[in-house]
Amino acid sequence: MSVIVILIVASLLVALIFLGAFLWAVRSGQYDDDYTPSLRIFHDETINKQHANKSSEHN
């Protein structure tokens, strides 16, 4: 049964990694603006299309 102690330690370590990732994300400001990215999400795609159209015109 003592293997369970190792498992506990391992699971805690994995969880700590995720906690660390969360803390880093908050500190680096990723949670400061939780609305604008939702507006930004479609933009790049259309830009690429435009570029694609342009390059095909040139060909």
Binding site: A15, F18, L19, F22, L23, V26, R27, G29, Y31, D32
Partner: peptide
């Protein structure tokens, strides 16, 4: 700094 940052950190830690 966003004043919510501090709260987010605490919620994250408490949840963990």
């Amino acid at each position: 700094k966003n004043p919510n940052r501090d709260l987010y950190l605490r919620i994250g830690v408490a949840g963990f």
